[in-house]
């Protein structure tokens, strides 16, 4: 019984995943923000992956869009960095860091 049900469940699961990624195309793109003297470049790819680049680092992450125009960056370590999308800007707050405003490039 279980063996019959599982493929169906997996299919449902896959469908749900595709449903989640419908708005990504609109948000995807390259954004940049200035913090102190550091320029941060945020690249959001269509496939839900993205990079956070500074002069020294390039951090990979996954991103997703939540309801209410929220952008979540899912870190590799299991954290979520929430951001707010409005038009071409993404506003983001990192703990201990000032508010970052990314402009679409």
């Amino acid at each position: 019984m279980m063996r019959r049900i599982l493929p169906i469940l997996l299919l449902l699961f896959a469908l749900a995943l595709t449903a989640c990624s419908q708005d990504k195309g609109a948000v995807a793109g390259t954004y940049a923000a200035q913090s102190n003297e550091t320029e941060i470049v945020l690249t959001l790819k269509d496939n839900g992956k993205g990079t956070w680049s500074t002069d020294l680092d390039e951090i990979e992450f996954k991103w997703s869009i939540r309801k209410g125009g929220e952008l979540w960056l899912h870190t590799k370590e299991g954290g979520v960095i929430p951001g707010v999308i409005s038009d071409d800007t993404i506003t983001m707050i990192l703990p201990g860091v000032d508010q970052l405003v990314f402009q679409r490039q």
Binding site: L9, L12, F13, A16, L17, K62, H74, T75, K76, E77, G78, G79, V80
Partner: peptide, 17 residues
């Protein structure tokens, strides 16, 4: 449960947190 589990499966590290 299906709905809750789907996110957790996708982001296991977050669920661990």
């Amino acid at each position: 449960f299906v709905f809750a589990a789907m996110y957790k499966i996708n982001y296991a590290a977050e669920f661990a947190t």
